[in-house]
């Protein structure tokens, strides 16, 4: 009896602990999804473009939701990529070198509009969401508490 108890205690943490898939397999899953997405993307008409990574995000999300792909098969590599996304964006920033002429011509106007637009998008969307959540809470009496 005691032996059995000891055994089950030994086994339990191991089965509970999720096992990450090897990193090469995680990369393989990402590559596969990217490949399929790059085939789907050109099927959309030119007037309604949907780029490859957006399709890939939706595809991976759906595969996770229907449990075809397990979270431990992709989580580690996903966190790794998200962790250095600011660096991945450096070439996009430096790309503005090619637009220095536009900047010289109407830079102040442009930058001012873009700065204000960024603030508008952030604040308006956030306030609109808070408004709808407030409506849900006060008009429809639903629980809107979110665990952070």
């Amino acid at each position: 009896m005691a032996d059995k108890l000891k055994n089950s205690q030994d086994v339990k943490p191991e089965t509970k602990e999720t096992k990450d898939a090897p990193i090469l397999i995680q990369m393989g899953i990402f590559a596969g999804i990217l490949f399929v997405s790059s085939i789907i993307s050109p099927m959309f008409p030119a007037s309604f473009p949907v780029p490859t990574p957006v399709i890939g995000l939706v595809l991976l999300y759906l595969l996770l939701t229907v449990h075809v792909i397990k979270i431990e098969w992709v989580e580690k590599f996903a966190n790794f990529l998200i962790g250095f996304i600011a660096f991945l964006f450096v070439p996009s920033g430096i790309q503005l070198t090619a637009s220095l002429d536009i900047m010289r011509a109407q830079g102040v106007q442009l930058v001012a509009t873009i700065v204000i637009s960024t603030v508008i998008l952030l604040v308006v969307i956030a306030y609109t969401a808070s408004f709808f959540i407030w409506v849900k809470k006060t008009v429809f009496k639903r629980d809107v508490s979110v665990q952070e």
Partner: peptide, 28 residues
């Protein structure tokens, strides 16, 4: 920019593709 920086910039830039897909994980 086009001839000296862009070849290397494009290599890094390409990784934004899998990095965007990666956001399916926090979403899920």
């Amino acid at each position: 920019y086009t001839n000296a920086y862009k070849p290397g910039g494009d290599v890094i830039f390409w990784f934004l593709n899998p990095a965007t897909i990666a956001f399916a994980v926090p979403l899920y």
